[in-house]
Simulated scan of single mutants.
Amino acid sequence: MLHGHGDDGYQYKQAIVANFSSNVWFGGKSENLKQHLFDNWDTIHSYPEASAESLVDTLAICLNVNKNQIIATNGATEAFYLIAQCFSKSNSSIIIPTFSEYEDACRVNKHKLFYINWAELTSKTIFEEGLVWICNPNNPNGNILESDELEEMLKINSKSIFVIDEAYIDFTDEINSCIDLLDKYENFILVKSLTKNFSIPGLRLGYLISNKVLVQNIQFCKAPWTVNSLAIEAGKFLLANKTDFLPPVNYYKSETKKFQKNLQKISGLQIHPSKTSFFLVELEESSAFELKKFLISNFGILIRDAANFRGLNSCYFRLATQTKEKNQILIDALIQWSKLNT
């Protein structure tokens, strides 16, 4: 899906005053990282490492895994397409609503698709043999799957390979990464993103981890040089200084509760619970498309129309908590909208 994602402000002529459409950590901009990239500017005059080897080495040390278990990718999205290509024409079960690129990657590679709603998912769910795609925490609704629930699924679905996307794991304190399960189960691929939590989506940086056999098979599908030189340098710098850059979960959690509480006071909105700093809002009337147009035209505010998430409809939009001041700008705008529409 080339279009239809969040953070599409580039399509509008208006200046964006407040961007609630992207669930990237809004406070992650760093002058230190900027200077580090300037210091390494000359690396762009040579080809990057074919497989981002130095970044893979750094990740292996940080994660305490063998470097042969890791593939560095051009964002987590490249990992999804590589996995789908490696298992071309397989069955794929996708837990919806969720990130659209799982489905798109599978369609390109001729998978037979099955869909299961999050509301119907349990640790006892039996899947079609093939791949199982789970975003944990899930985008767009902030749902989570506990590690013991996932482990039970891995046990009873031993002939399926689970692709677990942990792009938003640093946006919650309700669960920890399930990386420890890699030592226990062979039917498991973990995909991680360095763009959401470190606020560098424009650099496109992610990686996958699994057992050596699966990684070798997936690596066979990978083109060289997909991770550019500056992204490699950024990744190593951020991993070495990650405590200075990761989102403050306690702040996010507290501010999200306040934000949702104030939104609940506005007529015409239903706020859905979430374990993360982003969450779904459902309109009782009108459509998210019309609301998005109203907000961008009148206030320069951007929200995420969630109608194109499979399993949702035109009444849904997603918000990601911003600063207290920007949250209030949206609240005031929604109050005006509510008066005009209810």
Rank of each mutant, 00 (worst) to 15 (best):
L2A: 09
H3S: 13
G4A: 04
G6M: 06
D7I: 05
Y10K: 14
Y12W: 03
Y12H: 08
K13I: 05
A15F: 11
I16E: 08
A18Y: 03
F20M: 02
F20H: 01
N23S: 05
W25E: 00
W25N: 04
G28M: 04
S30W: 06
E31A: 09
L33W: 03
H36F: 02
L37C: 11
D39V: 04
D39Q: 13
T43W: 13
A52G: 10
L59D: 01
I61L: 15
V65Q: 12
V65N: 13
A72R: 09
N74W: 13
G75T: 08
A76T: 09
T77I: 15
E78S: 13
Y81Q: 06
Y81G: 02
F87N: 10
S88Q: 10
S88D: 14
K89M: 04
I95S: 13
I96Q: 14
T98K: 01
Y102R: 14
K110T: 11
K110Q: 15
A119C: 07
T122N: 10
T122Q: 12
K124Y: 11
F127W: 02
G130M: 03
L131Y: 03
V132N: 11
I134H: 09
P137M: 09
N138F: 03
N139C: 12
G142H: 14
S147T: 14
E149T: 12
I156K: 10
I156H: 11
N157V: 00
S158L: 08
I161K: 00
F162H: 09
E166P: 08
A167F: 09
I169G: 00
D170A: 15
D170I: 03
T172C: 01
S177G: 10
K184E: 11
K184G: 04
K184R: 07
Y185E: 08
N187F: 09
V191L: 15
V191Y: 09
T195G: 11
F198E: 04
S199I: 03
S199Q: 05
G206T: 13
G206M: 06
L208P: 01
I209G: 09
S210T: 07
L214G: 02
I218R: 11
Q219S: 15
Q219C: 13
Q219L: 15
A223N: 08
P224C: 07
P224Y: 07
W225Q: 11
T226E: 03
N228L: 14
S229T: 05
S229G: 07
A231G: 05
E233F: 05
E233H: 10
A234Q: 05
A234W: 01
G235Q: 06
N241D: 01
N241F: 09
K242Y: 06
F245V: 13
L246H: 03
P248N: 10
V249R: 04
V249G: 01
S254Y: 04
E255M: 08
F259K: 02
K261Q: 15
K261P: 04
N262S: 06
L263T: 04
K265I: 08
I266G: 00
I266F: 03
I266N: 01
G268P: 12
Q270W: 00
S274A: 06
F279A: 01
L280D: 00
L283K: 02
E285T: 13
E290A: 14
F299D: 00
F309V: 03
R310T: 12
S314E: 14
R318Y: 00
E325F: 02
K326T: 09
Q328V: 05
L330T: 04
L330S: 02
L334H: 06
I335E: 14
W337C: 00
W337P: 07
S338R: 07
S338A: 05
L340E: 05
L340D: 07
N341T: 06
